[in-house]
């Protein structure tokens, strides 16, 4: 089980790339509906932590638990299935599929989870409306602005009602106004659906949308709530 009431928790994570240590004994936990900012200088291990928590990368040692699941004990296929069904992702650059329309992009995670096309597109359209980009439904990602594309990416991350959203510099490519709107919409939607958000950012104004922050430095984590390094 994860620590009391938490949805996702990591214990003693170590990860090295060659001689470079990215994570050096990291503990982490997050509760449903909580937004936790992961701060730290470039190269401190923030993104590696996110990738380990999301089961994209396996740590060299340590465990990641999601509810009753031992993520670190799963094989590739099981972790992929878990990411599809329970996790949502927003990256700095939306990483939308360029050949699909924005509506099809948002419907994609639902389709991969077996939802019928019409139903998936109906849900997708609702999320586009909620993110205030319903006008982009028929456009391809290359035909919309950066701000719109990022909102579409947020809609896609939320469409399958994930229980954890991993956001890695979600506003990094946006101006202040667009960044702010994306953060408001993302955190509002996450709170409404009781999803947890792991928010990697180096921007304090973005971190201010979180409930608490942890700081990663030289592969170690300081939880500012607990004050432990």
């Amino acid at each position: 089980m994860t620590p009391a009431g938490s949805l996702l928790a990591a214990e003693g994570l170590h990860k090295a790339f060659g001689r470079t240590t990215a994570l050096d004994g990291v503990d982490f936990s997050i509760h449903p509906g909580e937004v936790v900012a992961v701060l730290g200088p470039s190269g401190s291990g923030k993104s590696t932590l996110l990738h380990c928590l999301a089961g994209i990368v396996l740590p060299d040692s340590g465990t990641v638990r999601y509810g009753d699941h031992d993520v670190t004990g799963m094989n590739d296929a099981q972790r992929s299935a878990l990411r599809r069904s329970d996790f949502g992702f927003v990256f700095q650059f939306g990483q939308l599929v360029p050949e699909l329309t924005c509506l099809e992009n948002v419907a994609l995670p639902l389709r991969l989870n077996g939802v019928k096309r019409k139903e998936a597109q109906r849900h997708a359209r609702e999320w586009l409306e909620r993110l205030e980009v319903e006008d982009t439904a028929g456009s391809r990602p290359g035909e919309v602005s950066g701000g719109q594309g990022q909102r579409v990416a947020v809609a896609r991350a939320l469409a399958a009602r994930p229980r954890v959203i991993f956001a890695d510099e979600p506003t990094g490519a946006l101006d202040s106004l667009n960044g702010e709107r994306v953060m408001t919409l993302l955190t509002d939607a996450a709170r409404d659906t009781n999803a947890a958000v792991v928010l990697v950012t180096h921007e304090a104004r973005v971190a201010a949308y979180s409930d608490r922050e942890i700081v990663v430095r030289d592969g170690k984590v300081k939880d500012m709530l607990a004050g432990l390094l």
């Binding site: 701060l39 104004r205 971190a207 201010a208 949308y209 409930d211 700081v215 300081k222």
Partner: peptide, 16 residues
């Protein structure tokens, strides 16, 4: 510096 960051972020959350 860490303690100060927490204090700044606390105020920034309130303003946000």
């Amino acid at each position: 510096l860490d303690t100060q960051r927490t204090e700044h972020l606390r105020l920034m959350r309130g303003l946000t």
